[in-house]
Design a protein around this nucleic acid. Structure first.
Length: 534
RNA sequence: GAAGGUGUAGCUCAGUCGGUAGAGCAACGGACUUUUAAUCCGUAGGUCCUGGGUUCGAGCCCCAGCACCUUCACCA
């Protein structure tokens, strides 16, 4: 048994948790519900700041003048000096007047100085200083204020005004206790740094770390903007099934699950594609889904097992249409969060001003390797030189490995890589005059694959044949040759020629908000479960 | 799955050559009615990730395990 410190009431003071529970108890003793209740007609901090013009200085003769632009609020005026000048000119002491406001939020900082306490109160729109003076709020309320801890949720009624140092402040007249935080607050300046804690306890990360909420609010703005861009072009948003009997539409390992009542194996979807195309057969000529897909693969700063995809399909379009749509989606999203078309990502700078560059797959290989991609022998030799596996592999597979090895990382972009080898793209229409080339693009930015689009294959017989054709050099698990008879039947009911687009939303948010890890743009990324003692 | 890194007070982090466990913030007590990460005085707080081993002696060295980070692998 370790020795325990105790305050006058015999309570252990070494553990902040114990101290907080003791304060909770004392608050309850005063008759106040420490878990709060409905609190109507409060203002958001953002809106309170808009009331600044209503703060006036009333001179002895009754005239009211605007308060100046303070040092602490971006201006240059020292309030004390300004007031004494005004008073001297008026021949008497004036008085500041300001609007009544009601705010609520979390206590982020506390600066008690004897019989007054300064607080920084934060709600989800911003932070504002609160002044609590013993003489101003009364003995009882001041005793309550002494039981406040960092992280507690409180409400304040008071007058909006300036302190002598020119800080916008709510001068408290009435205090309301809303909720006690029972856990110790993170470091008030450094916040939570440990990435494990930040991800596990995203609530604390959001509450106490600067900039985190802004990233996730930007994510919401980006997603909303994408919907607006598509909706304004008469795309219809739909919700496809997430449980699939056949995990198709991409080459990825699915999560397996099981339906008990039907005793049926199921897969979590790995793509949205095949159901959206069925809907185009049904006549929804412009259709999209913004939804979660699941891929049973490793995690990395760019991969989370569940992530958000946009897929959009436009009848009578092609991959060129999809390039234009992609440019609109991205530039509108940037406009929605502000900050300009030129953005920094790590030490790279990316100019998102459309139109984006368009470069052919083969040209890029030639440019970055100096080897002719049409020369299969030379490609194989280069692959061997790079230490890549070449035996029994299709020439296009080898070429693609070379592309991934030598080209992808260098594409700062944004650049549309166009015209892929047809054998790599079983859901893609071939060029009429070049059947070995597929009408497909991938959009690369900062070495990341951000979007993928095709002129969609709508020939049911060819589609069936491609499903049946096991690609050389790919295992069954790695190929997308999972026959989906119903999908082929759907094509037989006539799917219009169309362009289709997929965008990785998480990666887009990463790029636009400057976050280096996908886990910083996903609220609750996958983690191993924490072990709790109980 | 592989390699490297990290794990020390509630939080952020130091910890020398292997020799009694440290700071700032938070907490507790005190002073302070215009502070800005308030300041000042004082007090308390440790399963040094877990389990083994080497050693007279381990936060530090060795082995195994766990979690996270990075790179790689997997990844249309």
């Amino acid at each position: 048994m370790s020795k325990e410190a105790a305050d006058a009431t015999g309570v252990d003071t070494t553990d902040p948790r114990v101290a907080r529970r003791e304060k909770l108890r004392r608050i309850g003793e005063t008759g106040i519900d420490p878990w709060g209740s409905r609190f109507d007609e409060r203002s958001m901090v953002e809106d309170v700041r808009r009331l600044i013009p209503q703060i006036k200085y009333r001179l002895p003769d009754g005239t009211e003048i605007d308060t100046p632009n303070m040092v602490n609020s971006g201006g240059s005026v020292d309030y004390r000096t300004w007031k004494s000048e005004q008073n001297a000119a008026a021949g008497g002491n004036g008085e500041e007047i300001g609007p009544q406001v009601r705010v609520a939020g979390r206590i982020m900082l506390m600066r008690p100085t004897g019989k007054l306490i300064f607080l920084n109160l934060r709600d989800w729109t911003g932070e504002i200083q609160i002044f609590i003076g013993k003489n101003q709020v009364g003995e009882e309320a001041f005793e309550l204020a002494k039981l406040f801890d960092l992280g507690d949720l409180i409400g304040v009624d008071g007058r909006l005004g300036w302190t002598n140092t020119g800080e916008l402040t709510v001068f408290a007249e009435q205090l309301h206790f809303h909720t006690k935080m029972l856990e110790p607050a993170p470091d008030k300046h450094a916040g939570l740094h440990d990435p494990d804690l930040r991800q596990r306890m995203r609530y604390a990360d959001l509450a106490f770390n600067d900039g985190v909420r802004e990233v996730f609010l930007d994510r919401t703005r980006i997603v909303k903007s994408i919907r607006q861009t598509l909706d304004s072009q008469r795309f219809v948003e739909v919700e496809g099934p997430t449980l699939h009997a056949i995990a198709g539409g991409a080459a990825a390992r699915p999560f397996k699950t099981h339906h008990n009542a039907l005793d049926m194996p199921l897969f979590m979807r790995i793509a949205l594609e095949l159901h959206l195309k069925r809907l185009m057969v049904g006549g929804i000529e412009r259709v999209y889904e913004l939804g979660r897909v699941f891929r049973n693969e490793g995690v990395s700063p760019r991969h989370n097992p569940e992530f958000t995809m946009l897929e959009a399909y436009q009848a009578y379009g092609d991959y060129g249409t999809m390039m234009e749509l992609t440019e609109q989606i991205i530039s509108n999203a940037i406009e929605a969060i502000g900050g300009g078309m030129v953005r920094k990502f790590g030490d790279q700078e990316v100019d998102f001003t459309p139109p984006f560059a368009r470069r052919s797959y083969d040209d890029l290989i030639l440019e970055h390797t100096g080897v002719d991609p049409a020369d299969e022998g030379a490609m194989r030799a280069l692959a061997k030189q790079l230490g890549l596996e070449t035996a029994n592999r299709h020439a296009d597979v080898i070429k693609n490995e070379i592309f991934e090895e030598k080209v992808e990382d260098l594409l700062v972009g944004p650049v549309f890589v166009i015209d892929y080898p047809a054998s790599m793209c079983p859901l893609t229409k071939r060029k009429v005059d070049q059947p070995e080339v597929a009408e497909r693009f991938e959009l690369f930015i900062c070495g990341m694959e951000l979007a993928n689009a095709y002129t969609e294959l709508n020939d049911p017989d060819l589609q069936e044949q491609l499903f049946r054709t096991q690609l050389q050099g790919l295992s069954e698990e790695d190929s997308m040759a999972h026959m989906d008879h119903d999908f082929v039947r759907a094509l037989r009911y006539a799917m219009p020629p169309a362009g289709g687009l997929g965008i990785g939303i998480d990666r887009l948010v990463m790029l636009l908000t400057g976050q280096r890890s996908i886990r910083d743009v996903i609220l609750f990324p996958l983690l191993r479960p924490e072990t709790f003692e109980s």
